[in-house]
């Protein structure tokens, strides 16, 4: 992913340019065309602002009054003890919480100035702009590796023609650091891959539909340390073109990969989770403002 990449950008005629790896000048010029497309503040590239968001399961308040700025094209980590609502908030960002009966969210989550939570916004459209990678790798078992990458298009009935499909598959698998390992067995089932490879395949699948944001819900918790390292490198790399939000229980991981860290906690079991503090990762880990954050990071809590 070095010298050849910028040339491939000019040949791939993808709109919005979300999937194009960055060269600084190029990114700037694309930003202008991108900003013209969605009605957002100029220069916005996948930045999100979460305002007064509360999430409910039925009458149970799971997350209360979260307000948080998520910078575009950077990695933001959500950390905190189990049950603090970080996964719930993550799912609310691409409205996957609506899949769970009785779950709802209040407040607004703006992506480049567009409120994703607004009633008139189609959740299906939101999810094509905000992709998701899950805790357990979940490639589609009835599909080949290649079709897994194309799955987003196949499901929508937009399977591209052969040459365009091959190009897209190669580009996404390259981007997910998986191409070299699978290029000779694209027709095989995704089940034949190792856990770490499957997770990278899921990442390739998520970016193939050209989202602006990639959400990751503990993407490494089912993986061994070596696979975890590969995914961590990939997350850093993805942040050049996508806004990455990752939920993790691994403090060291949050410290290694994220630009911004948000710490969530809850007063006690059954209480709603709240955002305790957020800020640049370096500051959160070296000089947190709130004592609870320092206790958690130093392992004296949860």
């Amino acid at each position: 992913m070095t010298a050849t990449v910028p040339t491939s950008i000019t040949t791939t005629t993808t709109p919005a340019g979300a999937a194009s790896p960055a060269g600084a000048a190029l990114a700037a010029s694309e930003t202008l065309t991108l900003a013209a497309e969605p009605p957002g503040p100029p220069g916005a590239v996948g930045s999100m602002s979460i305002t007064d968001v509360s999430c409910y399961y039925g009458s149970h308040l799971a997350v209360a009054d979260v307000s948080l700025e998520i910078p575009g094209r950077a990695v933001t980590a959500f950390i905190g003890p189990s049950g603090c609502g970080k996964s719930t908030l993550l799912r609310a960002i691409n409205r996957m919480h609506e899949v769970i009966p009785g779950a709802r969210a209040e407040g607004s989550i703006e992506l480049d100035g567009v409120d994703l939570c607004a009633k008139e916004v189609d959740p299906v459209a939101v999810r094509s702009k905000v992709g998701m990678v899950f805790q357990k790798p979940n490639p589609f078992p009835a599909m080949s590796i290649k079709d897994n990458v194309l799955a987003g298009l196949i499901i929508r009935g937009q399977r591209p023609r052969a040459s365009a499909a091959d190009e897209l598959v190669e580009r996404c698998l390259e981007r997910a650091h998986l191409w070299d390992e699978v290029k000779d067995r694209l027709k095989k089932s995704g089940d034949s891959l190792s856990g770490g490879q499957q997770q990278r395949l899921c990442i390739a699948r998520a970016i193939a539909v050209q989202p602006d944001v990639v959400l990751m819900d503990e993407p490494c918790s089912a993986l061994d340390p070596i696979s975890t390292l590969a995914i961590e490198e990939l997350m850093r790399d993805l942040a050049r073109d996508y806004t990455v939000v990752v939920v993790t229980h691994n403090m060291a991981q949050a410290n290694r990969i994220s630009d911004v860290t948000a710490f969530f906690s809850l007063a006690s079991a059954g209480q709603p989770g709240r955002l305790v503090e957020s800020g640049p990762t370096g500051q959160i880990f070296s000089a947190p403002k709130v004592a609870a954050t320092r206790d958690y990071i130093e392992g004296r809590f949860g």
């Binding site: 691409n94 899949v99 078992p141 499901i155």
Partner: peptide
């Protein structure tokens, strides 16, 4: 058919009936 697969399909930005047709039924 694991719920994971349905969620993964929905998270790719497609309507539920298409996820059923293209993912759940073939699986």
């Amino acid at each position: 058919v694991p719920g994971d697969l349905r969620e993964a399909g929905l998270a790719l930005g497609s309507p539920r009936w298409r996820v059923i047709r293209k993912i759940v039924l073939p699986t």
